[in-house]
Amino acid sequence: MSFMESMSTEQRIREAARKIFLEKGLAGARMQDIAREADLNKSLLHYYYETKENLFLLIFEDELDKFYSQLQAILNGAGSLTDKISKLISAEMDAHLACPKLSLFILSELNQETESCLAKLRKCRLHELFRNFKALLEKEVELGNVREVDADTLFVNILSLSTYPFIAKPLVLEMFDQNEQAFESYIERHKKATSKLLENYLQPSHEPGLKEDINQLI
C-alpha cells in the first residue's frame, strides 16, 4: 500500500493540493492536477472542496501556521539574539524558496481581502511572535549585549529584507541576468549578507543612551 493510499480521502486531497500549490502556485494549479495527484476523480474533489481557492486557503493557513510556529520555536530556543535573527532570516527565505508564490499571495490577499487575511494571520499568533521578539530584544539591550533600537522597525526590516527578493523576483532575475539556479545561489548569499548587516548594526554603542534609526543604515 502506498503512502497516499494509506491516508483518508481528505488527507490525500490536502497532501496532493500542497504539492501542486507549492509547485505551481494558485494561478498555475488546476483542480484536475490535484485530483490526478490524489488519484481521485474530479467530481469527488469538488464534493470536498468546491473551488481551488477554498482549498488553497486551507493549505495556506496550514503552511502559515507551520511557518510561524517554526519562527516561534527559534525565538524560544537557545542562542544569542543575533543568532536567532540569523535563523529567522534563513527560515523565512527557505519558506519562500519552498513556496515561491506565498509572499505574493499574502500581499494580494491583504489588498483584496484585508480583514479575512488579517484574521488568518491572527490565528497564527503573529502578535505573540512580535511580543516575544520585543521582550527578547529589550532583555538583550538591558544586559548590554546589543544597542538600543526600535523593536518594530527592526522586526519589519527582518521581514522585508527576507521577503523582497521573492516579491521582486522577475526584476532580480532580469537585473542580475540570473536563471533559477543562480537565483537560489544569490538567496544563500543574501541570507549571510542580511544576517551580517543586522549583526553589525546591533553591536553595542560606545555612547551610552545612543539610539539610532535602522532606516539610516539600511
Rank of each mutant, 00 (worst) to 15 (best):
V149Q: 00
F56V: 05
L88N: 03
A95F: 09
S205V: 11
E180C: 03
L107R: 11
E199G: 02
T9D: 01
Q70K: 14
P165M: 01
L75S: 05
K196N: 09
L143F: 09
L110T: 06
G28Q: 00
M175W: 11
Q11K: 10
L159Q: 13
N145T: 11
L159I: 15
L45H: 01
N200W: 04
L129Y: 06
E188A: 10
N157L: 12
K196S: 13
R18P: 04
T51R: 04
E184T: 07
H190V: 09
L75P: 05
H190L: 14
R189V: 09
L202A: 03
A27L: 12
G209R: 03
F105C: 03
S205F: 06
S195M: 06
S116Q: 14
Y47Q: 09
L173F: 02
L210K: 08
P204T: 08
A193R: 10
I214Q: 01
S205E: 06
Q70T: 14
A182D: 15
L173T: 04
E61H: 13
S8K: 06
C117N: 02
L137G: 05
F130C: 02
E5L: 06
K191L: 07
D94A: 14
N200S: 11
Q112T: 15
A16S: 08
T9I: 15
S90D: 13
Q178M: 15
L55H: 03
M7S: 02
A35M: 02
F60P: 05
R125F: 07
F21G: 00
R36Q: 13
K84E: 06
E180M: 07
E212F: 03
S69Q: 15
N111E: 10
E15T: 10
P170N: 00
R12P: 04
E140S: 12
S185F: 09
Q72A: 12
E128A: 13
K192T: 15
S185E: 14
E10V: 14
S116W: 00
S108L: 05
I158Q: 04
D62E: 15
Q216P: 00
L57E: 12
S185Y: 08
E37W: 02
A193F: 11
V146Y: 03
V146S: 02
L154P: 04
D33P: 08
A151N: 02
S80C: 02
K120G: 04
I34Q: 00
E92C: 05
S86I: 04
D65L: 14
Y164H: 11
S80H: 01
Y49T: 09
